[in-house]
């Protein structure tokens, strides 16, 4: 605690949580800057929720240390956890009162946030009757009532339609601009690209940390995007020039050691197999490519 950098809002050291002999979170050492949008990115079961819960003090770590340099913080769990049988206004008033905010201030702040989130017209609606996106916005409103310097969100856009997801991120950006540090977990790679800092987590271990740009820059392989008339292209992965390959929609992404050599090898192979090529081009790696490569390395 004494050595904590004032610019960091959260620091952890060798943070570990063991459930029934299995480490859900394993030796995580993190520093989160004040003013960051910190994305914890990984698939289901990677340990994101457990890590966030420890950061919020909801569960105590089995080992390791956390320092949080912020008195107030808002937390939005993955599952909607406000009262469904209370209206939007009642939920807000209740949580405001728990923070001992006087009712006038609650109303003013709630109006502010509801205006941003577009919920202002639905104040007397029961929370149970809201759509997934609206529920998330209400949860966000309640988490923001105490004007926290730190906002922790666990998969806030899980199960929310793409339009609402976009809107939700817009709100996060606006809050961040106002000085709120945001820690968010997500399984979506496109959301990872929206974060200022990304930590890739898999099986409880932080595999890699950095801003999306430099993570992609440090990607050691080239990526070829291939579109061809074949349902199965996995045989390409057997080429010695190829590291790995997988379908992304109707396109096949191939990670290769050396772009030009691999290109020639693939064209040869497909000609041999009489598969028509629509296009084959060198593209910059996406977050998903980075993630797949990083987690595969761990397996090997």
């Amino acid at each position: 605690m004494d050595k904590m950098n004032i610019n960091n809002i959260i620091e952890t050291e060798s943070l570990t949580k063991v459930f029934g002999g299995l480490a859900a979170v394993n030796e995580v050492t993190l520093k989160i800057d004040r003013g960051d949008i910190f994305g914890l990115v990984g698939p289901d079961g990677a340990g994101k929720t457990t890590l966030l819960r420890m950061l919020c003090g909801l569960i105590t770590p089995s080992r390791g240390r956390i320092s949080r340099n912020s008195d107030s913080f808002g937390y939005m769990p993955q599952k909607f956890s406000l009262y469904g049988d209370l209206t939007i206004a009642e939920n807000i008033n209740f949580f405001g009162a728990l923070y001992k905010i006087d009712s006038k201030t609650i109303r003013r702040r709630a109006d502010e946030i509801l205006e941003i989130t577009g919920l202002a017209g639905f104040k007397s609606r029961f929370a149970d009757d809201l759509s997934g996106g609206m529920k998330q916005k209400l949860a966000l409103t309640c988490a923001l009532l105490a004007k926290p310097a730190l906002l922790v969100l666990d998969e806030p856009t899980y199960g929310v339609d793409p339009e609402s997801r976009k809107e939700f991120w817009k709100i996060l950006y606006q809050l961040n601009k106002e000085g709120v540090t945001i820690v968010v977990s997500t399984p979506y790679m496109d959301e990872a690209e929206l974060c200022k800092t990304v930590a890739l987590i898999s099986r409880g271990i932080i595999m890699s940390t950095g801003d999306p740009g430099s993570l992609k820059k440090s990607f050691p392989y080239g990526i070829l995007e291939l579109k061809a008339d074949a349902r199965d292209l996995d045989f390409i992965n057997d080429l010695p020039e190829v590291v790995d390959g997988d379908f992304y929609g109707d396109k096949y992404h191939v990670a290769v050691y050396e772009v030009e050599q691999a290109k020639a090898a693939i064209i040869n192979l497909l000609a041999e197999k009489k598969v028509a090529i629509h296009h084959l081009r060198h593209i910059p790696p996406s977050m998903e490519d980075v993630f797949v490569a990083v987690t595969k390395e761990e397996v090997v």
Binding site: L58, F73, Y75, P77, L98
Partner: peptide, 11 residues
């Protein structure tokens, strides 16, 4: 319902 978790992060 998870509301206890939400309550626990309040003061």
């Amino acid at each position: 319902k998870g509301t206890l978790e939400q309550l626990m992060v309040t003061p």
